[in-house]
Simulated scan of single mutants.
Amino acid sequence: MNSIVIMGVAGCGKSSLGAALAQADHLTLLEGDDYHSLASREKMRQGIALTDADRDGWLATLGDALRAQPQGLVVTCSALKRSYRERLRQAAPGLRFVFLDIDKAQAQARVVARAPSHFFSTSLVDNQFATLESPVGEAGVLRVDALRPLADLQTEVSAWLHPTTEAL
């Protein structure tokens, strides 16, 4: 089993799908948000978008975690830019990504709904969409509709990760 990154903009459902997939596939879940520095968390709380430099240590930490779990790991990480995804791929050859695709209005509504319990400022959703470089067309990427029921998404991703070869 290779590792997998559940990716997308804020509010797309990375944490929910990551948890469901980790449970279904008996893998460890690494919640990417837990590995942001305190300074980065404070910037996001204040509505200040992170820079590539802010994300550098975070991506290095996630890469180290991927290298340390060769048996497989589910990682939630926005992975908004191709360069971020390439850094993670270097850490874990064969790494796959599930892109939870969502429109801006739905993402904004979800971020607003979780605002009381999450450090991410609702004012940053526009920046997330401006930063996103779609992974569609990259090798090892599955695009899914973030608005589908969680159980359906988990089933689809698990089937993609573990294709069966049934004889006809």
Rank of each mutant, 00 (worst) to 15 (best):
A113E: 15
A113T: 03
A113H: 13
R114F: 07
R114E: 11
A115H: 13
P116M: 13
H118I: 11
F119D: 11
F119W: 09
F119S: 11
F120I: 10
F120K: 09
F120M: 15
S121E: 05
T122N: 11
T122Y: 01
T122P: 09
T122R: 14
S123D: 14
S123F: 02
L124R: 10
L124A: 10
L124T: 04
L124S: 12
Q128L: 02
F129H: 04
F129I: 05
A130G: 06
A130V: 00
T131K: 00
T131G: 10
T131H: 03
E133H: 04
S134Q: 09
P135N: 08
P135M: 05
V136M: 05
V136I: 15
V136Q: 13
V136S: 06
G137K: 08
A139I: 08
G140H: 04
G140F: 05
G140Q: 07
L142S: 02
L142R: 04
R143L: 00
R143W: 00
R143V: 01
V144Y: 00
D145R: 03
D145P: 09
A146L: 03
A146W: 01
L147E: 14
L147Q: 15
L147A: 15
R148G: 02
P149W: 02
L150V: 03
D152Q: 15
D152V: 05
D152W: 04
L153G: 00
L153V: 03
L153K: 00
Q154W: 01
Q154F: 01
E156L: 14
E156N: 01
S158R: 15
S158Y: 01
S158A: 15
A159I: 02
A159W: 00
W160S: 03
W160G: 02
L161C: 12
L161Y: 07
L161S: 10
H162K: 13
H162V: 04
P163Y: 08
T164Q: 15
T164V: 13
T164A: 14
T164R: 14
E166A: 13
E166W: 03
E166R: 06
E166M: 09
